[in-house]
Simulated assay, not measured.
Amino acid sequence: MERRHDIDALRALAFALVILYHVAMYYVAGWDWHLKSPHAAGWLPAPMRALNLWRMDLVFLISGMALALLWRGGSRWALLRQRSWRLLLPLAFGMVVVVPYQPYAQGVANGLVAPGFGDFLLRYYTGGPWPAGAFDGAHVGVTWNHLWYLPYLWLYTALWVLALPLLESAAGRRLRAAFTGLRGARLLLPVLPLMTYSLLLWPQFPPTHDLVGDGWLHAVYGTLFLYGWWIGLDAGLWAELRRWRGRAAGLALLLLVLYLPLRAAAPVDGIARLGLRLLADLYLWSAILAILGWAHHALNRPWRWLRWANESVYPWYVLHQTLIIAAAVWLAPLALGPVLEPAALLLATVGGCWALTALIRRSDRLRPLFGLKPRAPLPRPSPALPAAPAARNA
């Protein structure tokens, strides 16, 4: 099968954007996060909102594409076992080892957790209890924080495995063919289920990332995961996405220019808020169409950095938010100001991810804890052949 370099590159760039977004969350004015800088930036909410409306939606759609690339028509249960190992083991390890510093730093900053990381861990590993609002997830006792993506992805993969006979049935194949046969403006039709979820689920199920009570996000992310699986490597649809990339980008930009000022002026509740949500859905899908089309146009080539990025993206994802928070705590007393501090925070996060991932990639014990496959064994040297006897003189 031909290697699709654009999908590999898009996956790496999407997760890089997640890391950059989380660095910016420390500075965006008016938005809650685990820690907040005193150098809040009033100009950040608009670009952050422009990204936030599609960044994780794109990640789940790419995850569906990745499943389509992995699926070879073999045992779906074997594939589920493989994906469970690569998703749930890093989740468990991350929750035990990588994440705990985040609630500790947040609890100390909130004045509801006493300084002393060792004492915090003893209490954390036994489930608390914690004062209300000590950190995100304190009511449960522990948290997975940014690793919420892993159980969600595992859930959608498991549902895909259960639904595969239906998806591969005659009716399922017709539905997939209808999706991949969309052309021109009909490429916008897949937004209709997303709008339906906004009408029926969004008001009752605000995002929680707790897996259990996230009805609206499950509907959206699960549908985009399915869209990604349907898109897969369908040559006709990818050619149409590439052809339509300019119009999709123009539409997304127009919708964003309408959405941002309307959201700033609209009342918090009421029909106007619901209308804005529907406008956001149309912007979300137009942006994804544009991103897929431009990625196929510009990124489908064997970039030199791509092999490294493909193996590094998972450890970077697991590590990055803890490194951001640790670096923020370390930099805060230095009072570097609103320019040097963000630059130093980004540099510390990238440098920490780079250095730790270099160690992880070389360790056979650490690799599975960060979702990496075992290293390919080095080729064994061929045994030396005996020298040929010298030819006799005639």
Rank of each mutant, 00 (worst) to 15 (best):
D210N: 14
G172R: 04
L70K: 03
F370S: 05
W354F: 15
L61T: 03
A252S: 15
Y152P: 05
A355E: 01
A280W: 03
P45Q: 00
H139C: 09
T208E: 12
L278E: 07
L254C: 13
H5I: 00
A239E: 13
Y124F: 14
G337Y: 08
L241R: 05
P100A: 11
D32E: 14
W229M: 10
L69D: 03
L147S: 05
P302M: 04
V59R: 01
V329I: 13
I231A: 15
V59Q: 03
W303Y: 02
Q102G: 08
P383C: 08
F120R: 10
L80C: 06
P129M: 13
L345G: 06
L274W: 11
V268Q: 11
L51C: 12
R186G: 06
S198N: 12
A40Q: 14
L254V: 12
M56T: 08
P115D: 06
S169T: 09
L278R: 02
A14Y: 00
L260I: 09
L44H: 11
F225I: 04
P207K: 12
A171I: 10
Q204W: 13
I360P: 05
V28C: 13
Y314F: 15
R123H: 15
Y283V: 11
V97T: 06
A178Q: 13
A114F: 10
V108K: 04
G236C: 11
L61K: 02
G94D: 03
S63Q: 00
L164F: 12
P193H: 11
D8I: 00
W77L: 13
A177L: 08
Y124H: 08
L346D: 01
L70R: 08
Y156P: 11
Y259D: 12
W154C: 06
V212S: 08
G73V: 07
L323G: 07
A177E: 12
A68D: 10
M95D: 01
A332W: 07
A287P: 04
L201F: 09
T208Q: 15
V212L: 15
G228I: 05
Y317Q: 02
F93H: 03
Y314W: 08
Y101V: 13
P206G: 04
L58W: 01
